[in-house]
Design a protein around this nucleic acid. Structure first.
Lengths: 220, 220, 220, 220
DNA sequence: CATGAATGAGAGTTCATTCAT
DNA sequence: TATGAATGAACTCTCATTCAT
């Protein structure tokens, strides 16, 4: 007889029943771990903490993960996955450089309000092993390159005022990444609002002054 | 006879002689600790690590600091001290709102390239004890309030285009705070360049479009 | 396959098998700790000492006790438990004041030859945390009050010669508590002998001189 | 210029002036150490604690004592010295066995209210090194033997009722030694009162019932 | 002499991880 | 499968003791 789990968050409830999809359980561990890592930092979160919040025992965690770092890495992976989706969507999305940047800001800001996304930019990379650290750094560089390329597109098609794409990208990325440090799910600003406002505000800072000239996008 | 310390960084050399200004030694510990905290995170930096880099033994550290957290707190304090200086300077500085924001960005960006400054925004506040955490949070809110007030001034005196000061402040703060995550002393961009460029770029995003109207500052 | 434990004291053997009653193991730790505390003093007994004597490792102790002081407190608790039993028995026991005092002396002397009982009066209360210290002091006062009340009863019912109950109680308590400083399990005097002799000797010092008058207990 | 020491206890003041009798300083250390040992137990008293209470530095202590244990041993020695005086006085003192016992109780009770005396019976002998422990134990046995011999004298000269001198001595010694556990200088009972009352009460417990027969002391 | 500084050894405690059942 | 028990390694911190001045 499964315990009454009506009042528990779903990822805690995942362990209530023995015959539950193991994938779901793995996911539940990750959700809980991410929560805790963001609350208390990775270093101060013990495997016991994770197990306790899930109402399971510590060794049970080792059925789903080889060790603590694997949990951390997986949190990163899920987070970067979310970002990857954004990048792909935008790549397919046709439009001006400015529009791409705007879309990026909007979506990325949203990701920064989701726990796994927050992990990527809020947790301390220094807690990763050298290998994983390398991967993460590489991925972060990729995001940066992409954002710069969107900006460059905008400069080229004259939707964005001439500027140093590197500095602009750093500014935008910084503003966005910082969201995960101050965003609170129950706070005054909803994720949606934040995303919308940031998209508008940051884009305005970039946009080329409106002239009679149209953007230089071929065929549009 | 003091050891030959010509080849050591100054803050390591501070411990070469037994009778050296204790203040200097305390400072040396802090510098080294800040370095390590930024390299490896607070949690993964042991007192031994700090001692070893200074070529002293672990217990010697306890002559200068009551415990590990006191070192962390002191790093924060030195960092916030740097920021405090900025805020005071700008407060005295007369000028338009936009000018104040620009001055803030310039100086703050510089602080974010200095280790102690980086500590404030890069280390994990969750590693602080509740008391210290409270203080730090309070101080961070203060910085935020100040930046918003500068922006509001700019809106009022028409040097800054109408916008939500809260969102604008978050964006700017984020862009600036993020510097301490990617800045490298030996990197392509010097602190000076970063500060200058950020001041120009971010300000441009805020500035009211140039019209014939002059800013509403008395006597201008 | 459990190790051969035939030759080990029972409380050491408790850890021979992984799946042994945890209560038994807890108890085994306490017995060993009490032994060591009495041998070497609490301060000079390290957790390692306790673990070694049990042939386990130090951290294993932390499965059963939160910290070293909890072990100490538990030793006290077991000891005071023994005394509590005495007090309750005597309270139910009907008889003259002198008989109650005699019963108390006899039983208490016996407790002072048992390790846990010895702990209460032999270990240094100053090693307890303020909270626990308070509890212990309170309990010791209780014992004192009880003994005094028995004596007072005796004075009232004329089985005990008039005297200052306070001083008398201090004398008796002192004589009894001191047992735990000199008693040796393998010594010349057995616990039984000590208890019997102390009961007789100390009682004689108190008893009212035999007169024709009977004690003032109804029906006697 | 010596500091104003009017308000300090004399043994703290001993260090106020550089040119003070070193013997006095040694003594001052001992007084302070004894105080602390009784307050917090030997183990929990650090050399720093002692130094701080004397307003000197830790290494200065090592001018007067080789190590911490020497301080402890010296406390014991001063305490046993006080007891030794008693024993000698009584040895010279002519009188019945009962009178000797009474004198012993009176004087010994007084010693148990003096810090150095308290140390001997209150501190944990287990904190002594094997050598010192041997000495102390030997001395304690000597005291016991003496007390027993006084009692035996009393039995022989018929001032003390027949009894087992061993048990009687243990009782009396216990009652007396326990004083140092509950005595408080500022408490309700003064040292004088305690000594007087104990002498009377304990002696009464021993005394042979008054008969027409006189004690068998020659010439009385 | 006296002291600030330094240290080696060891304390209690925590924790990621792995047995043994 | 899942878990209570156990461990080794590491950490922070303390302290008696000794240099170096």
């Amino acid at each position: 007889m499964p315990k009454d789990t009506a009042l528990l968050p779903t990822h805690v409830a995942a362990f209530a029943n023995r015959r539950r999809d193991p994938g779901t359980k793995r996911e539940a561990v990750l959700k809980t771990a991410a929560e805790l890592f963001l609350e208390k930092s990775y270093g101060r979160t013990s495997m016991n903490d994770v197990a306790q919040r899930l109402s399971i025992t510590k060794p049970a965690l080792y059925h789903y993960f080889r060790n603590k770092e694997e949990i951390l890495i997986e949190c990163y992976r899920l987070g970067t996955g979310l970002i990857e989706e954004i990048l792909n969507e935008i790549a397919e999305h046709c439009g001006t450089g400015l529009e791409k940047v705007e879309a990026f800001i909007y979506s990325y800001a949203n990701v920064m309000t989701v726990n796994f996304g927050r992990c990527v930019m809020r947790l301390d990379d220094a807690d990763l092993s050298p290998d994983a650290l390398g991967e993460v750094r590489k991925y972060k560089r990729k995001i940066d390159r992409r954002l710069r390329s969107f900006i460059q597109e905008g400069i080229d098609d004259r939707t964005i005022a001439p500027c140093d794409p590197k500095i602009a990208a750093f500014s935008i990325a910084g503003a966005l990444n910082w969201i995960c440090h101050w965003y609170e799910p129950e706070g005054a600003l909803s994720a949606e609002e934040i995303a919308t406002q940031f998209a508008r505000t940051l884009t305005r800072g970039l946009a080329a002054p409106r002239t009679s000239a149209r953007p230089r996008v071929a065929g549009k």
